[in-house]
Design a binder for these strands. Sequence first.
DNA 1: CCTGCAACTGAACATCCGTTTAGAGTACGA
DNA 2: TCGTACTCTAAACGGATGTTCAGTTGCAGG
Lengths: 213, 213
Amino acid sequence: MRSDDLTAAAKIRDAAMNLFGERGEASVTVRDIAAAAGVSPGLVIHHYKSKDGLKAAVDERALSMLKDMLAKSSDPQASANSTAQSMSQMTDAFADEIAQFPTLLPYLRRLLVDGGDSTAALFRSMFEATRDALSRMQSAGLVARTNDEDARAAFLLVNDLGAVILREQITDVLGVDPMSPDGIVRWGTAVLEAYSEPVYLPPKKSRPNKGKP
Amino acid sequence: MRSDDLTAAAKIRDAAMNLFGERGEASVTVRDIAAAAGVSPGLVIHHYKSKDGLKAAVDERALSMLKDMLAKSSDPQASANSTAQSMSQMTDAFADEIAQFPTLLPYLRRLLVDGGDSTAALFRSMFEATRDALSRMQSAGLVARTNDEDARAAFLLVNDLGAVILREQITDVLGVDPMSPDGIVRWGTAVLEAYSEPVYLPPKKSRPNKGKP
DNA sequence: CCTGCAACTGAACATCCGTTTAGAGTACGA
DNA sequence: TCGTACTCTAAACGGATGTTCAGTTGCAGG
């Protein structure tokens, strides 16, 4: 049953995750998926009942992978070495996780970008996790106080997700993938600097402003 | 020719920009566009030769509108009142521009999200504009110095575009559209605070870290 | 008036889509 | 050995899609 390499159903699911992440569900046909998985179009429907059923299975799989990944990266933080983590250790751990599931981030990007109810639920749960984590860090004196915790949490979350969504464009202008082992250090350094030291300085007579929307 | 309301070709183009921005090109049919514009499917092809031709015309139109909008919002900054602009004035001006072309931002979102060569070119030009603006502001003492200007410019740009891309999700969790007259004040305040005062505080013994990818 | 040209429509066309169907091959227990 | 259940394929079906085509309208210029 689960013999040599992978079940045909699993091969179909993985191929679909790949293609959906790259092109979006609407631009990927059942025949594309079948060809990528090396099976007939009929088998795709046989295993997943319909294209929507396959999409649901891929969604479930991706959310499960994401949950595992987030759990794995927050567990050791609270267990063994509580305070001794340097940023490079953090980023290295992330880069490892990302490299282990190369199809997850592109698909997460699609989940966020394609809209719909599952997108809203996913974003909301990430938002609440971020807000709670910031609240805890604020109590621990690691994060400054603010008048609008919701807006700040949403802003920080959007920034992280923005790097996931615009990963390809960032790679293009910086010359390095911000989710690669090399790039994540450079990106994380810039992020940490922007959040730790002021970017905009108070002017002499008026107030600071921005240039782009 | 350009009589009562709008040319049929223009109506088709505007309807297409609407639908493309909402659902993405692949999910919108020529018949959908024709119905929204109140014409026959054949006329769509007659005017734009093909669906791809229509897409190209819509892209061109959107980029032209974006260019106008960015030009209009950087002109008065250098002309009349050079330093007396408050943040609320800035955001109000932006909210006005956005409200004037309600279909532009959703389509810009699609341009960024759908990928392709035009996406890369658009992002790169925005990146260079951001980097140059930051460089000028740094010379004027309005922005702090950094070791990696490219990474910082990309980061700030990605954050702004993230709000455009995830606008709907932000609206959902904050209860207010960050691109609306009300919401843009709240969002802009949080952004300005995060960039002007430290978010992450230096811990006593170790270094700060983050919670989300 | 009428000739020509552009806007426009309704119907048709070929193709592609998701899905169905009939059946071949195989494993496994009775 | 038979039968049953399961995986899988090839072919086909109905419907939707982008595009084409023949033809009608309306209008500008000689």
